[in-house]
Amino acid sequence: MIELISQPWPWYIAGPAIGLMVPLLLILAGKPFGISSSLRHICAATVPAGIEYLKYDWKRIGLWNLVFAGGIVVGGYVAMHVLAFPDPAIAISDETVSDLRNLGVSNFEGLVPVEFVSWAGLATLPGFVMIVVGGFLAGFGARYAGGCTSGHAIMGLSNLQLASLVAVIGFFAGGLFATHVILPVLLR
């Protein structure tokens, strides 16, 4: 059993498990599935700076979401250190490996490309753009769009919400642009 759990989980286990977050949060907690609003709550709690968007009772509105986000951190630790992560490298397709090699990625071990996404990588231009610019745009865009992959792609689409479909198409178009236009220039 523990061996099974230690393996990377196939999509048909992971996807339904993520989808079940929607009814579990609604029934057990009366809360809608979503993560990126936690960013707003933390801003409201720490540096509201008189900004209208950040002036609300974050404890009443958002404390649950912050506890949920804290749980994700713990879950990340548990998955990595308790349930073990046997594969030194993610088993991505050969085509992807070859494409990324052509872009200059040589280390395929771990969850992230350590040449760029690491403290040493942060000092390089590609690493800085991926870590800092990528993070900034993800935070800004998620709040501008009113949700991220969980809030729009999972919860919003589950709710058959046209606005979420538009946002998700935007997510995908933006990701394609980053992958096929920005990264080739950045990593060359």
Binding site: I35, S36, S38, L39, A69, G70, I72, V73, V74, G75, G76, Y77, V78, A79, M80, L111, V112, V117, V129, M130, I131, V133, G134, G135, F136, L137, A138, G139, F140, G141, A142, R143, Y144, A145, G146, C148, T149, S150, H152, A163, S164, V166, A167, V168, I169, G170, F171, F172, A173, G174, G175, L176, F177, A178, T179, I182, L183
Partner: peptide
């Protein structure tokens, strides 16, 4: 906001390879 915010988010997602949920999970990992 859905189109523009979505595109901006997507570019960030593509660059970083992580969205807010995974950011928390990766930190824990």
């Amino acid at each position: 906001s859905y189109v523009a915010g979505g595109l901006i988010f997507g570019i960030g997602w593509g660059l970083l390879g992580a969205c807010p949920g995974p950011i928390y999970a990766l930190f824990g990992a």
